[in-house]
């Protein structure tokens, strides 16, 4: 009887301790915009999420979110932190007043990126003027370097994408940017709107060579993917969050599922930079000219 009583009290105490353990750290969610697929997004960002949890003493949970659903799900309060492309950041800044935390660095332009318009070498399409009346393929509509930048570049060059080209299309499914590149490479389309980063990565991977495409034009550089946060999150936490990201070095590792992983390399990121919101004004101007969200007028 005595033994049973001790066992009961012991179990109770242990479970109380366990409750206390899980209740120690607040739980918060980070919505990550899917680039290609949910699976890829989770694989990329879970080590970083674990690292942030360890550093900030908060249980962060990674939520994969489709680009077009992002503003709506954020507005519904599904997550406190966001990792999106810079256009979605601008939209949510306008609509939800989210806080800018840090901008991802990747590729030649670091924390910035650009959109390019390309044609296949030997196609005879050598200048932007030549694309009139041709078939064009864009990236997804909310992609700043796969759609908006090129759309704006065309408008600024006196080409109306809605009137001056034969027709344009947007691919569906995953790996949209690569599909765009291959669509031109295999002559399905004449001209493509490609992020400069994808061209760079495909060349580095040996999938294409510099001689395969004519670069007809490139947009000015503007901020790349961005971490943001709900405006009512504790400012102290936001400050620390930003600092942890900015201080992240290539050598930093995290223990994740029994392995020691390099945080930045796992997320395919070179680092983070703390930009100011005004650095995104260039993108805002593009969105206004192209009549795109959040400035779209009907």
């Amino acid at each position: 009887m005595q033994f049973l009583r001790i066992l009961l009290v012991g179990t109770l105490l242990l479970s109380l301790l366990a409750c206390q353990q899980t209740g120690e750290r607040p739980v918060m969610k980070i919505g990550y915009m899917n680039c290609n697929s949910e699976e890829e997004t989770m694989k990329r960002f879970q080590p970083l999420t674990k690292y942030l949890s360890d550093q900030l003493n908060v249980d962060f949970q990674a939520i994969p979110v489709d680009t077009q659903d992002f503003p709506e799900r954020f507005a519904a309060g599904e997550f406190e932190f966001t990792h999106t492309n810079s256009l979605v950041y601008v939209i949510m800044r306008e609509e939800q007043q989210i806080e800018l935390l840090a901008t991802e660095m990747r590729g030649n332009y670091g924390s910035h990126t650009a959109g390019t318009i390309v044609s296949k070498k030997g196609s005879g399409i050598k200048t932007l003027e030549d694309i009139k009346g041709k078939r064009m393929i864009f990236g997804p509509q909310l992609a700043p370097s796969g759609y908006l930048a090129q759309y704006d570049l065309m408008l600024r060059s006196g080409i109306d994408p809605e009137l001056d080209i034969a027709y344009y299309a947007i691919p569906t499914g995953s790996f949209k940017h690569e599909k765009v590149a291959y669509a031109v490479y295999f002559d399905q389309f004449d001209v493509a709107a490609l992020p400069a980063l994808d061209l760079e990565l495909m060349t580095r991977d040996g999938k294409i060579t510099a001689e395969d495409f004519n670069i007809l034009g490139q947009s000015p550089i503007f901020p790349y993917c961005t971490f943001g946060a709900r405006k009512d999150v504790d400012p102290e936490l936001l400050k620390k969050f930003r600092q942890v990201l900015v201080d992240l070095s290539e050598a930093e590792t995290v223990d994740y599922q029994g392995e020691s992983l390099k945080v930045l390399a796992s997320a395919w990121i070179d680092g983070f930079e703390a930009l100011s919101d005004s650095d995104y004004d260039l993108l805002r101007e593009m969105a206004k000219r192209a009549n795109m969200p959040p400035y779209q007028e009907f």
Binding site: N108, A196, L199, E200, T203, R204, A210, I215, Q218
Partner: peptide
């Protein structure tokens, strides 16, 4: 040389791609 030629022709984006290719 191909990079420098592209650079001189102000085809800077392609020059960067050529460098990416050579860096392999």
């Amino acid at each position: 040389a191909p990079v420098s030629e592209l650079q001189q022709a102000e085809k800077l984006e392609t020059a960067l791609l050529k460098l990416d290719e050579l860096s392999r």
